[in-house]
Write a protein that binds this DNA or RNA. Structure first.
Length: 645
RNA sequence: GCUACUGUGGCUCAGGGGUAGAGCAGCUCACUCGUAAUGAGCAGGUCGUGAGUUCAAUUCUCACCAGUAGCUCCA
């Protein structure tokens, strides 16, 4: 007998060799029906896995990540089987489950067309109906290589060859299909209920652009048709919030072919929001001891050679001139660091001067590859709330904490603090050429940073290879409506550039020392942050950020004069207001103002003129009744002052 | 940059080898109206750009430009 500890902490005795599925059945038939996999001592296993020793067992359903991944991973195997049946010459690469579905990569002679996806989906349905059992078996490494060579699967062979000698590999067989796979999987293809192929796209083998581009098919799967439908409806709903669509509809920004890719034009309303954010940031930073700088947007190549950008970031820069024939080559700045560092270097600093906090509303230029641009999220010119803090090693932790405190304050004010995740981005020790500085310094500063993050109790995920070329980063990540993640805010600890650019301070003992530098942004770059806000609020910005805060809607001509009087009063108090004097019915004017997502509509007719009032309509609560003009002014000013969400 | 798809008036879209249509928006007129679209009329497009095929191209082919999704890259 063996002892199995279940999720609720209870322990039961079972016959040695009992399967995960049998344990589920012993608990309840209902659980056995929905169980998809089992987590045995922390490792996810098939339902058919036999328990030989005392262990903890957590039965996983679709609501558990492990269960969901097993379910969708099985769907990806069904996808590869269907593709193989229809296109026997394709070569299989990899096919994992991902957050909201699964994919499989194939090498094909010709690319998949949308009609191919429909055919493949049909074949998948057939395989599900066939209810093929997934059988797990293992082979030693050498035999596994031979097996895949005979099957003519070069990508699988390559994957196996990368594993150490003596390794034993697991395979899953379902009907006519066998795939190399660690598992876990569902017991049979019939367990899959609702599947859908979403799209196909190119993807590089092993994620490197140096490799061949394969064909990737994305799909998703749910235990119920209704859940799949719900998911698809949710995706469509999310797309309506897409900043790239909504931002143009709301006249926040536009693009024109003649100006070029990644160069959006901020229209008056979009520019107004950015101005509000920018003033807010600059004032708040001043309160927190930042010193404002204004530095040039371009510099001679000499500066970038000194900072290392020329060696490590040249592809990302707009370079003016040709080194081969021009005496002077300039480049637009991709980052502010070397410029602000020159301000620091303009005089000799004592340890008594530190910390020094420089802030700048800084416009940067990056020559992104043509396929990268996306609305306001990925652009070639952007303006960032940039800053560099120069401090002693002893001050590093406090300064870092101060930065995180400022960032959290910014995010809370915008209402986005719960929509982000934290990423600790480290260097890649296997790719040292990408970075400046010594290996031991990298490890040292990363340890320091991890300690600070732990002290701050930040819930972060460590990722290798995402650091800047000069130091590790704390990245604050946000997902857009398509589920794609971008860095919205970043804090970087830099030990290397200060040394490289010979920044020093004089310490107590009259020795010259290199300071630490924290590179940071408080609110991110304004374009990207605006994009996030558009999607967060679906264009219905909090009143303090709304480009137009109130729209006055006179009923008919004779109310126009009073409407302008009210508008003047509001403007005088700093409220952004418009008057709609078009010859249209009130219902029409309200509809338009509502679609423009204006927080307050003020209807003015005979009654309001007599009582010196306004009939207030809120975009979210509808008709609020008539109040005096003064009362409305007090109410909206309070809302703006408190930056109410 | 790579893969696939897309590009028709300001916007959303229909059409299709014989030089174009709808709705909304715009303008004009009438209506002077109380909380999500009043009616009528008018105007607006060398069908992304360039080249090729053809008697004829917006439609077919190629290149370029721009957009969308994914990959790579990245704030």
């Amino acid at each position: 007998m063996i002892k199995i500890t279940l999720k609720d902490g209870s322990t039961q005795e079972y016959q040695k060799g009992i399967s995960v599925k049998e344990v589920a059945e012993s608990i309840s038939a209902g659980l056995a029906r929905v169980a998809l996999a089992g987590e045995v001592d922390g490792k996810v296993k098939d339902l058919g896995y036999k328990l030989e020793n005392d262990c903890t067992l957590n039965l996983l359903t679709f609501s558990d990540e492990g269960g969901r991944f097993a379910y969708r991973h099985t769907a990806s195997h069904v996808l590869s089987q269907a593709v193989k049946r229809l296109f026997p010459n394709v070569k299989l690469a990899i096919g994992p489950a991902i957050d909201n579905g699964f994919y499989y990569d194939f090498e094909t002679e010709k690319n998949f067309l949308p009609e191919d996806l429909a055919k493949i989906e049909k074949e998948m349905e057939k395989i599900i109906k066939e209810d093929l059992t997934l059988e797990r078996f293992t082979l030693p490494r050498d035999e596994a290589i031979k097996f895949m060579e005979e099957k003519g699967e070069p990508y699988k062979v390559e994957l196996i060859r990368d594993l150490p000698e003596g390794e034993v590999l697991s395979f899953y067989k379902q009907g006519d299909s066998v795939d190399l796979c660690a598992g876990p999987h569902l017991p049979s293809t019939g367990k899959l209920k609702a599947i859908k192929l979403m799209s196909s796209a190119g993807a590089y083998w092993r994620g490197s652009e140096k490799n061949k581009m394969l064909q990737r098919i994305y799909g998703t799967a749910f235990p119920k048709r209704s859940e799949l439908d719900e998911y698809i409806t949710k995706l469509e709903e999310a797309k309506k919030r897409d900043h790239n669509k909504l931002g143009r509809e709301l006249e926040l920004f536009t693009t024109v072919e003649e100006i070029g890719q990644g160069l959006p034009l901020l229209m008056p309303k979009g520019a107004k929001i950015i101005q509000i954010l920018q003033r807010f940031v600059e004032d708040e930073e001043e309160r927190r001891g930042y010193l404002l700088t204004k530095t040039p947007m371009l510099a001679k190549s000499d500066l970038y050679k000194l900072s290392g950008h020329w060696q490590h970031y040249k592809d990302g820069m707009f370079i003016l001139g040709d080194e081969a024939k021009d005496e002077e080559v300039m480049a637009l700045r991709p980052m502010t660091c070397p410029f602000q560092f020159m301000i620091y270097k303009a005089k000799l600093h004592s340890y008594r001067d530190l910390p020094i906090r420089y802030g700048e509303t800084s416009t940067l230029f990056r020559n992104e590859a043509s396929g990268e641009m996306h609305g306001l999220i990925r652009v070639r010119q952007f303006t960032i709330s940039e800053g560099h803090l120069v401090c002693t090693p002893e001050q590093l932790e406090d300064e870092f904490k101060g930065v995180v405190d400022l960032i959290k304050f910014m995010m809370e004010t915008l209402g986005i603090q719960d929509d982000v995740t934290y990423r600790f981005s480290k260097w890649d020790p296997n790719n040292k050429d990408k970075y400046i500085g010594k290996a031991e310094d990298w490890e040292d500063v990363q340890d320091k940073m991890r300690t600070i993050l732990d002290h701050l109790k930040i819930d972060y995920k460590e990722v290798v290879g995402e650091a800047a070329f000069y130091g590790p980063k704390l990245d604050i990540q946000s997902k857009n409506v398509h589920g794609k993640e971008d860095t919205i805010i970043t804090v970087q600890v830099d030990f290397a550039l200060a040394e490289r650019m010979d920044m020093v301070y004089v310490d107590k003992n009259n020795d010259k020392k290199h300071p630490f530098v924290i590179h940071r942004t408080s609110i991110g770059c304004y374009e990207r942050t605006l994009a996030m806000l558009i999607e967060k609020y679906a264009g219905a910005f909090p009143t303090w950020l709304s480009p137009v805060q109130a729209k006055i809607l006179p009923l008919v001509d004779k109310h126009h004069d009073f409407a302008y009087q009210v508008a003047a009063m509001l403007k005088d108090r700093g409220v952004r207001v418009e008057v709609d004097t078009r010859n249209e019915k009130i219902g029409y004017k309200i509809r338009e103002a509502q679609l423009e997502k204006i927080p307050y509509m003020l209807v003015i007719g005979d009654k309001e003129m007599e009582s010196n009032g306004v009939a207030v309509r809120s975009r979210k609560d509808g008709d609020l009744g008539t109040v005096s003009v003064q009362e409305f002014v007090d109410k909206i000013l309070e809302e703006i002052r408190t930056k109410a969400k």
